[in-house]
Computed example of a mutant assay.
Amino acid sequence: MRIVTVLLATLAGLALASLALGDVTIPVHELTRAIVNPAAASPDTQVILLELRLPRALLSLLVGMALAVAGTVAQTVMRNPLAEPGILGINAGAALAATLLIVALPGAPTTLLPWASFAGAGAMATAIYTLSWRNGTSSLRIILIGIGLSSLTGAVTTLLTAFGDIRDVQRAMIWLAGSVYDADWSKVRLLALWLSGPLALIWLGARELDLIRFRDDAARSLGQRVNLMRGLTILLCTLISGAAVAAAGLIGFVGLIAPHLARRLVGPAHIRLIPVAALTGGVLVMAADLLGRTVIAPAQLPAGLVTALIGAPFLGYLLWGRRHVPA
Rank of each mutant, 00 (worst) to 15 (best):
M1K: 02
R2H: 13
V4T: 15
L7R: 08
L7F: 02
L8T: 06
A9I: 14
A9C: 12
G13A: 14
G13R: 00
A15Y: 11
L16R: 03
L19Q: 10
A20N: 04
I26Q: 08
P27Q: 06
H29F: 02
H29L: 10
L31G: 09
T32I: 13
T32E: 08
T32R: 12
A34F: 11
V36I: 15
S42L: 09
D44A: 14
D44L: 15
D44I: 13
V47K: 07
I48M: 12
I48A: 06
I48H: 02
E51V: 00
P55K: 03
L58D: 04
L58M: 14
L59Q: 07
L59V: 10
L61D: 01
L61S: 11
L61G: 07
M65P: 02
A66I: 01
V69P: 01
A74P: 02
A74G: 00
R79F: 02
E84N: 13
G86L: 04
G89V: 04
G93M: 09
T99E: 07
L101H: 07
A104N: 02
A104Q: 04
L105M: 15
L105I: 14
L105R: 07
P106S: 10
G107I: 03
A119S: 15
M124W: 13
M124Q: 13
T126H: 02
I128M: 03
Y129Q: 05
S132A: 15
S132R: 06
S132G: 05
W133F: 14
N135F: 10
G136S: 06
T137K: 07
T137F: 01
L140E: 11
I142S: 03
I145K: 08
L152M: 15
A155M: 06
A162R: 12
F163K: 12
F163P: 01
I166T: 14
R167E: 15
D168N: 15
D168F: 00
D182S: 14
D182I: 01
W185H: 10
R189Y: 09
A192K: 12
L193R: 04
W194D: 06
P198L: 03
P198V: 07
P198T: 07
L199W: 09
W203P: 03
R207G: 11
L209I: 05
L211P: 01
I212L: 13
R213M: 13
Q224G: 02
R225D: 15
V226Q: 10
N227K: 00
L228K: 08
R230E: 03
I234D: 01
C237D: 00
V245A: 03
G249I: 01
L250I: 14
L250A: 14
F253G: 11
G255T: 11
L256K: 05
H260A: 11
L261D: 02
L265Y: 11
L265P: 14
G267F: 03
P268G: 12
P268F: 09
I274D: 05
P275N: 09
A277S: 15
A277T: 06
A277M: 01
T280H: 11
V283W: 04
M286K: 08
M286H: 02
A287G: 13
L291H: 00
I296E: 10
I296R: 09
I296T: 12
Q300R: 07
L301R: 07
G304F: 08
G316L: 15
L318D: 01
R323Y: 11
A327F: 05
